[in-house]
Amino acid sequence: MNTTRALVPVAWGMLWIARAPLEHEMALHMAVQLPLLIGVGYMLATFLRPYEPRWFAESDWLGIPGLLLVVFATSFWMLPRMLDLALSEPWIDSAKFASLPLLAGLPLGSSWPRMPGLGRAFLWANFIPKLGAIGGLYLAAPTRLCAYYRLDQQAAAGIALIAVAIVLGTCWSVIVFVGSPPFWSRAGIRRQRARHEILEAGE
């Protein structure tokens, strides 16, 4: 238990050490460093769950405020201007290292389980195409958006974001289309029959 907990500071520290190489490439900065920092906070949330204050669990109705915070924090750090500032101002980079785990990863980990399935589907449905669209903008932009990245690095970042969006979108569509258990399997058919009967009995 304690060793897994130690993962959080270790991962965080490693990301801090790997700062320069990851931030050197826009694609790594956006598609690797930022998500990993969020991941650190997410891990932290799973360890902190037993200590979550009651009032917070109650006020975070359906996980809406928490996930809204995630949306704000991630949008903030994806702004080209903030990417630039993170490179030029060490204190801004430190703020990023503190706020992405604490204001994006942590609320994500604590609020996501509270969000009902419909809300999660809504968030996925909005997140995936927007990620792809940002990627498309980077890929197609004729000018540089960041002072610290070349046009080709910006295009590579665009491709990376589009790739992530395609992978996520494909996974999501396969899951909703095929279902689990898959509809052609025995288990799937049995489950469908059973559900049918329950519903008919309820009518």
Binding site: F56, S59, D60, I64, P65, L68, L69, V71, F72, A73, S75, F76, L79, P80, R81, M82, D84, L85, S88, L145, C146, A147
Partner: peptide, 27 residues
Amino acid sequence: LLLGLVLCVGVGALAWATEGFRVITSQ
């Protein structure tokens, strides 16, 4: 309360970073 707080902080931070929603780049 929580929602209001998140909204204020979030919109405030974005407004700061974009100079009142006018720019997205450092240039």
